[in-house]
Nucleic acid binder design. Structure first.
Lengths: 227, 227
DNA sequence: AAATCTATTATCCATTTGTATAATTTTAAA
DNA sequence: TTTAAAATTATACAAATGGATAATAGATTT
């Protein structure tokens, strides 16, 4: 159990975030932790990348919704210019697509902006060591991306609590139309069935997704990527 | 999403590990942290699953190399028997295949056994909250599993500000509630105004966003991130 | 001071939505 | 083959939604 891996005492970080208020707040908050040292900040991706290339920080806190070049593109570029720099996405975007894209782009962690400073400081330390961390609110999105192993042994996969698995093919089809803003009447027309059928499907979708109405269903479908 | 998620002060955990020495060591080490409470231990998967089903712990520390049923299979079963229980794989296996399989089987975290007690305690707390964590030594395996996004640039940036700029502060507030699945009545209650007012706001939101109904508004709000 | 914008409230009304219940047919599995 | 699950259709009803229209008050701008 002896630590062969030498942890860095101080983690140097760069913040890339367009809102000055958030940026300044982050900086002052993080600088209160003695293992964190904010060495630079930028308000857009281009500026950020130059800075990161020069400073080669341990960790970058990257916003996704940046003006001009967005955070995903920036993350890819960071990984090219500073190979050893880890990227933590810090955003309010909860879309499944973006979580997957961010991790695919090379991000080491994905945090939502309502994270506590304490947790963020821990994430920064862990990510600096090379760990991967995904925020509770979107962790299921990332984890569901990994395929269920088949060859484990004979496993009686009773019923998966996966929301998507609960829906039938037809219901998934209806859900897709629903997310596209179609009314029951329009859905019925698309599927060439009666409105009653469309309503029946929507009803069972609502029940299976444990939501009260179609808005919640659409939101859940998008956020959990079950489209 | 407005649910007030309160962190549990104490995390109840069960340890499934065949080597008694390791098991006892883990238990005594972890019990020194006041936010961790080891409520049970098992030396094989069958025994562990029974225990977990009965105790419904917050977190399970699961070894991979177990006699009889292995840790992967056990993880799948745990997720069936105790839906809300999080699984942390604690192993010395560094094979990429196993990392991917474990995460696919439903594990929320993957730790190597040379992890420091301090870090493990943090991981336990974070995972109890729902986070996903992967050990530095194998994080690249997990992260490389996510495909590199192709059309990064296409992810909108400028258009977002336009749509958002058109909405007043109040309307944005209403939109947020709408996205959270609130009905007009509920929105009115939240904002302490009449239902008529809420309806008026929703109406003008629909017009400004150029959509026909609240489902489309919610979808647009999420996809274009104007929440 | 006048014009404009925003927030608020209200009424009327057609349409949509969600729920309950139930019957029939098709399809898939045991 | 029998059984079970899924898809289909239907009726009826309470509740919610969206559109049109309009009036009032407060704040901001010109």
């Amino acid at each position: 159990m002896t630590e062969i891996m030498q942890k860095k005492e101080v983690v140097n970080i760069v913040i890339v975030e367009d809102y000055k208020l958030t940026r300044v707040g982050l900086k002052s908050t993080l600088n209160e932790y003695k293992h964190i040292n904010v060495v630079g900040e930028a308000e857009d991706a281009d500026e950020g990348i130059k800075l990161i290339e020069k400073l080669q920080p341990d960790v970058v806190l990257m916003d996704l919704g940046l003006p001009g070049m967005n955070g995903l593109e920036a993350t890819i570029k960071v990984k090219e210019k500073a190979v050893n720099t880890k990227v933590i996405i810090l955003t309010s975007h909860e879309r499944g697509e973006e979580v997957i894209a961010a991790l695919g782009a090379g991000a080491n962690a994905y945090c939502l902006k309502d994270i506590t400073p304490e947790t963020l400081s821990e994430v920064i330390r862990n990510v600096a060591d090379g760990a991967c961390w995904v925020d509770p609110a979107v962790s299921s999105i990332a984890l569901n991306f990994f395929p269920k192993p088949e060859n484990v042994t004979l496993l009686q996969t009773t019923e998966v609590q996966d929301a998507r698995a609960q829906l039938t093919e037809r219901e998934l089809e209806v859900l897709r139309h629903l997310v596209n803003g179609k009314s029951n009447t329009e859905i019925a027309k698309e599927l060439i069935v009666s409105v009653h059928t469309a309503k029946a499907h929507v009803c069972s979708i609502l029940q299976k997704l444990c939501v009260d109405d179609r808005v919640q269903a659409a939101v859940k479908a998008i956020k959990e990527n079950i489209i």
